[in-house]
Nucleic acid binder design. Structure first.
Lengths: 222, 222
DNA sequence: GAACCTTTTCACTATTTAGTTAGAAAGCGA
DNA sequence: TCGCTTTCTAACTAAATAGTGAAAAGGTTC
């Protein structure tokens, strides 16, 4: 009866598929519960396979977590490469980068949760993954080039480097996702409300553009 | 031999002291390990009293966590009231508030960790605490007054309200603490390095002042 | 068809964990 | 002194938890 129905049990042996199944489920569980809070039995339950296979492929809970973390960083990096702003004037390029980052982060909340969890653990797992540390965010190179052009053109401050700018853009975007729950609970505002999205995306651009374009007059004591 | 030595076992019955002892230790443990990661036995071990007393006073692990969270929010609120910027012109007041917040957050890292942990839990514990939700940050009232003066004076944008401004200031300051570990691991920069503190405090002020003082000309398409 | 890889089954273990029982000693305020 | 509160001791429990053992069967590849 079921043999002709679409691909649910088409695969009999599909190691890659099994790994992907486990990791997809584990990503959700780790992002939702944290490393200590996640339950291997729960993950196994939600997959099409068994706990034994988790250990067969990933060795340990930590091994699985690390695989999930690596995959999340890699996926995000892939998406980053979609942005090309080399043809735009620095001001517009910077705005585009910031607004793209904002959209990107607000639509990859599981990734942000994993990053926050990793920070609670003081990045101890990330430190173990040479692979993640290698795939240095491409956003930095893009930013470096934009900033160089803006500084050379005399329209950008020269005392904010690419990492500083990245920090500000990330801070703004990540905060809205990462701290949405306490913010809403205390102030009653849902920062991710669809009605606010356009305003907050624009504000991400305003924020970084406005601060970068304040070329300091020597008179102003700072 | 030990009877004349300073206050270690001075107290015989000191319920308040016992509570404080437990909470101080629990704050560290929860901030470091998260709720699921924290161990009641470990907390008991690090106090001068026993596990039984933790349950005597706090009922459960969650009860203790909630007490810790409430105390942390209250302490931070107390410190916020130290700031008085009513006499300053709005531009300087805003800068002072931002830079004060930056200093404040970078020197209360345990609190920030608790907030991040609470966000991982989608603020479910915070929701249970009417007490925390009541002590609405005084920073908001201060900000409201500053912004009103700035907007009335024609030097501030009128489309950014106090919560928006608070969000930007918090995002900047909290990010540097909350995400310091992944940031350092990936980019090699310690955002909390003492040598960078002055620069980053100033930048907190620049960021919010620059974005607020961009009064939009109608011609500029936004 | 042989060797190897993947998958299933499932009971099992050792440890950790939050939380308890029960009693008793001792301080403190009235 | 009486009664209530606080503190300590120390074993104990029940459940949850990460991880394993061992065997067998079914695919896959060469």
């Amino acid at each position: 009866m079921a043999e002709n129905l679409p691909a649910v049990e088409v695969r009999k042996r599909d190691p890659e598929g099994t790994r992907r199944d486990i990791m997809a489920v584990a990503t959700v569980e780790f992002a939702n519960q944290g490393f200590a809070g996640a339950r291997v039995d729960k993950i196994a339950e939600d997959t099409a396979t068994t706990k034994r296979m988790i250990y067969y492929y990933f060795g340990s809970k930590e091994g699985l977590y690390l695989a999930v973390l690596e995959a999340a960083y890699e996926e995000v990096r892939l998406l980053e490469t979609n942005l090309n702003v080399d043809d735009l004037e620095p001001l517009l390029a910077l705005r585009q980068l910031a607004e793209f980052t904002y959209d990107h982060h607000t639509s990859h909340q599981a990734f942000i949760r994993l990053v926050q969890i990793e920070n609670i653990h003081r990045a101890e797992h990330l430190e173990k993954s040479q692979r993640i540390r290698d795939l240095n965010s491409t956003a930095i190179f893009t930013l470096e080039s934009i900033i160089k052009r803006g500084v050379d053109g005399g329209i950008f401050r020269s005392d904010i480097d690419a990492l500083d700018a990245h920090m500000m853009i990330s801070a703004y975007s990540i905060f809205q996702v990462a701290n949405q729950h306490t913010f809403k609970s205390i102030f009653g505002r849902d920062m991710l409300d669809a009605n606010l999205h356009d305003k907050y995306r624009r504000l991400a651009g305003d924020m970084i553009v406005d601060v970068m374009t304040q070329v300091l007059p020597p008179s102003q004591k700072k």
